[in-house]
Write a protein that binds this DNA or RNA. Sequence first.
RNA 1: GCACCCGUAGCUCAACUGGAUAGAGCAUCUGACUACGAAUCAGAAGGCUAGGGGUUCGAAUCCCUUCGGGUGCACCA
Length: 552
Amino acid sequence: MKNYLKPFLEAAVRAIGVEDVPEIALEIPRQAEHGDLSANVAMTLAKTLKKNPRQVAQDIVAALRLDATLVPKVEIAGAGFINVTFSPMFYAVQVAELLKQGQNIGRLEIGKGVKANVEYVSANPTGLLHVGHGRNAAIGDTIANILVWNGYDVTREYYFNNAGNQMNNLGKSVHKRYLELLNPSANPFPTAEEDDSLYRGEYIREIAAALQKQHGEALAEPTEKTLTLCRKTAEQWCFETIGKTMERMNIRHDEFFNEDSLYTDGKVKATVEDLRSRGVVYEKDGATWLALSKMGLTDDRVIIKSSGEPTYRLPDIAYHYDKLHNRKFDLVVDIFGADHIATIPDVMAAVATLGEDKSKVRVVIHQFVTLTKDGEAVKMSKRTGRAYTLDDLIEELGADVTRFFFVMRGVSTHLDFDLGLAEEQSEKNPVFYLQYAHARICSILRTAEERGVKVDAAADTALLVHSAEIELIKTLLRFPEVVAKAGETLEPQTIAEYLREAAAAFHKFYHECRILGEAEALMQARFALARTAQIVMKNGLTILGITAPEQM
RNA sequence: GCACCCGUAGCUCAACUGGAUAGAGCAUCUGACUACGAAUCAGAAGGCUAGGGGUUCGAAUCCCUUCGGGUGCACCA
């Protein structure tokens, strides 16, 4: 719709003597009386032209060369809006075009040839995924899908760290639980007060039990060898478990990037030297500092501790540099929880100092998740070891509902995950509203087949003139625009919101217009419309990583 | 104390990124199954967009400020 009108307006603006034609913003007015599309160019141009906006609008409209059978009405309203109304014929043509694309409605080529990397989840293999990881996973995977539909060449990446102290603590935790199994009365597992570095989740016991089963009492001595075995076993267990959880959410990463490789490849070292040669690294108090104050930020930060260990900032910088410079990604998307917010400016500044274009990096920050049920908060604390895990959530709700609830709100809002509503297997649950629309269309087509009614591909869409039909067409035509928009803003929630509207438009159409039993030509036209809606619903749900059931 | 996010209907959130009379779902109240699935549809009611200033043709949206909620501010990741 917008794409159809834009060139005409641009031509008209040029025709009235404006050389530098601005980006023409078109929007769908809230009020139906304001037409189907509204342009505000006249108002934005008024200032530079030093003319009354209404006068500018009149000039533009006078210069417009539109096909009156497709665009019967162009009005000037308010302060200088140009309101355009399309004819049913226009919609008939457009929907026929859409239908020609078959299953590919919404597949765009905006990002063709652009290498994109989306990094998400990225939990270290020290435990189970919790609810917060779930939001990260759902957002990240949906954004990856959105980019794929926009035509980008997408790599889904998981960044993890299986080195360092956290892993030793993990191994130690498993070993202590193992000793506990051998001799419970000795109480070998310290309390949280005695040692807060240990992992206390139930899963540690599981791993310990598996070790006991396999090795009996052979690992009782805490030698380096046994601790390494504990650590390795635990790491592998965690990774497998995380992988299973991801699989349940219909998520598969292409690349698992090990932080450790940045050290073994010498990339961390090279990054430090590179930064040093640019004069932004110095030594103080035995540590190595990054002079962020020279990059427009306020505080300098340590990148290598006096102990010789790097802080997390350093590998982060090396990692981003690697993605941009060595792996040559044109677009790097990071999905982070709100707790990472502080490090981003540092990493960006450093990457820019290293000569990379930091505008290629897009950071999506999502706020935290609170679980509520019947108005009360549900605990998901990690400390107690009895966290409400992502697996629990999927177990209880299924993958579709879980994913939908994570992306149906804007990423920057604190997500209130209403377990009561999510559990509801009824009309209250917004997921089913979308899925039902799809299932309903499938059902109509099934019924047609049962009754021996043929669905003809060559329908005359010009017969679709009912207001509910036009509304549905308008909504369906927006789908590619919505996908494109989501690709720019990286906001998954816009897809969810759109699908709700599309489902509503279909349900309304269904109630007001019969399909089966109508005169042949009209029936075929409505079949065509229903099938278009079916494809849009299916593709939209696919982007969200949710199934489009044929019956429910 | 400093930085970032948020504050919109009773509740959970939208608002096409500065547009015209701020919209949905849930909850409340009315209606609609003898034809394709009522997990649906139609309607009612619900608002000084936290408060106060500003910017302009025009502000929920941008700027300043106050108040509330969240998160982060280590030689932890």
